[in-house]
Design a protein around this nucleic acid. Structure first.
Lengths: 149, 149
DNA sequence: CTTGACCTTGGACCACGCTCCAGGATGTAA
DNA sequence: TTACATCCTGGAGCGTGGTCCAAGGTCAAG
């Protein structure tokens, strides 16, 4: 069976070599085997997994979440897997909702801005500068993403 | 005119004091004046600005982008401001679309999983583990968020 | 004047997600 | 065998967005 070196794997996934090793350190992606020399060898499954990691990232999942997601595939407990997937689904739906609020706020602003003329006619500028930031007024902010550390 | 100390300002904006100082260091928010003692004093305009910064963050703007946005408001260039907002809007919409694809994929998986029985009957397990990750297969990934450094 | 809350600065530290480097070993093709 | 690409490990460094701490100064009330 054909295997890939770390460089070939990285190239095929559009990722840097260091990133692959970083993912390994992070418990996300292990080589299928190692040569006696220590060289990592990957199979198609690892490539698939790596691509999955990248896709999930573009969808806003943190590496930690992705690790959890991938861990599911190891647990052979179908019920747990299903519950986890459902939880993830709910999470994704919440994110979509949050992004949609974002989008609505921005769309309102963009629509209301003539794109020319007096700065005082631009709601974006008014929201930025003035007292009447009504247009940008969004719900408090509670749900910040980058954990409040 | 009534002014606020840094503590009062932070409280009113729902932010930590350190965060206010951090924003100042980052060139986002300067106090209106300082007392002889060095104490920062803020006016309503700064509170508005601070709230704007937070709102913008919830809209997915980075502090760097917010700094640019705030700089634009000084430039009074309506067209540029609008373009920046439009770009962000497009970005947010792309993210929503990507998340919706993920949601659909997850929903399909969850629906198709019996929640019990053989692991081989669970499509989630099959999608995550195997070669045929078809259900989770999403478009390439191009639009990475955290700049490729 | 004392107390306690509030403020100052400078700098360390954190998590995240990489990215790069040094020094050395290995693989492969000519 | 030589040459060159590729790989190894361990650890440092980076940008982002904070958060915390020490050592000390200030403000307002009683």
């Amino acid at each position: 069976m054909e295997t890939l070196g770390i460089g070939a794997l990285a190239k095929r996934a559009g990722v840097r070599i260091d990133t692959v090793r970083y993912y390994e350190r992070s418990g996300l992606l292990a080589p299928k085997t190692r040569l006696q020399s220590g060289y990592r060898r990957y199979s198609g499954a690892e490539l698939t997994r790596l691509r999955f990691i990248r896709r999930a990232q573009t969808l806003g999942f943190s590496l930690k979440e992705i690790r959890e997601l991938l861990a599911l595939s190891k647990s052979r407990d179908v019920a747990r897997v299903k519950r986890a997937a459902q939880a993830k689904l709910a999470d994704v739906e919440q994110r979509i909702a949050a992004l949609q609020r974002m989008r609505d706020g921005l769309a309102t602003l963009v629509e209301a801005c003539p794109g020319h003329g007096e700065p005082t006619d631009c709601p974006i500028l008014r929201a930025l500068g003035g007292e009447g930031a009504d247009l940008l007024d969004l719900p408090p902010a509670a749900a910040r993403r980058p954990g409040q550390n």
